[in-house]
């Protein structure tokens, strides 16, 4: 994919998911797809609510999710030819404080999959007067995140594949990916797994089967090329579909 295709992918994805992607800040800046006033922030492996506040205040994100204010970052950098990808960074920071020892969870008897961590807890927290009162809450809550990094320095190290995923709390673990996801692929991935209700409404029928298999496949078109590597022969990894 070249930079224009990436931009189109991003715009098309926003158009399709504009019911849940909000506060968009994506821009194209020369050879990069990024967000306004992009400033690198050093974020710790163990992230707290405080750190998310930093993202919010500094406006370092591409989208927020209307459901819970989670953040998505989308960054691609190309060579001057605009077709060779040098660097990429796709991140999701979940604004869903991980509560302590179970007593915050209020499932309401609903399907675990559909309520996950978002609706009930966040609603209660947001509406409660004490939520905003003090930094204690912020210091206390750990938040989940994941980030896909790509840099085109090839390595033969299975632990440091050129495109890999970091998962919050799991320190240095770098789970290899076969392809750098396009914006569409990444966002679809996030929504599908972390906002299953919305995904279900958009993509699946009553029985949970795809409404339109062809359409789902086309989400992977266009996509970047598969990263050639022997690393896939050694350890389990994540396969990103190519159309």
């Amino acid at each position: 994919m070249n930079v224009s295709e990436v931009m189109s992918s991003l715009v098309a994805t926003y158009n399709e998911w504009s019911n849940i992607l909000v506060n968009t800040q994506y821009i194209r800046e020369n050879n990069s797809i990024t967000w306004r006033n992009h400033t690198p922030l050093m974020l710790p492996y163990i992230m707290h609510k405080n750190d998310l506040d930093l993202l919010e205040v500094k406006k370092q994100y591409t989208f927020q999710i209307i459901e819970d204010g989670s953040f998505i970052q989308i960054f691609y950098k190309f060579e001057k030819d605009n077709s060779t990808l040098i660097e990429a960074r796709l991140a999701y920071y979940g604004n869903t404080p991980i509560p302590r020892s179970g007593d915050e969870w209020d499932q309401d008897g609903e399907d675990l999959e559909l309520t996950f961590t978002h609706d009930t807890i966040m609603d209660e927290l947001i509406d409660s007067d004490t939520f905003s009162q003090n930094s204690f809450y912020h210091d206390d809550f750990i938040v989940p995140w994941l980030r896909i990094d790509f840099s085109n320095e090839e390595t033969e190290c299975p632990l440091h594949h050129s495109c890999h995923m970091h998962i919050g709390l799991f320190g240095d673990a770098r789970i290899p990916l076969t392809v750098v996801p396009s914006p569409r692929q990444f966002i679809e991935f996030i929504i599908a797994h972390f906002y299953p209700r919305e995904y279900h409404l958009m993509r699946l029928d009553q029985d949970g089967k795809p409404k339109n298999k062809g359409q789902l496949r086309k989400i992977n078109n266009p996509s970047f090329q598969k990263i050639i590597s022997d690393n896939y022969d050694y350890l389990p990894h994540l396969n990103i579909p190519i159309y």
Binding site: E56, Q64, D68
Partner: peptide, 21 residues
Amino acid sequence: PPLQKKLIDLNIRSKIPGLGS
């Protein structure tokens, strides 16, 4: 969100504050 989208289509930026904090 739909209102925000309509504004984007008119080249107007908007912000929905306080979604999570």
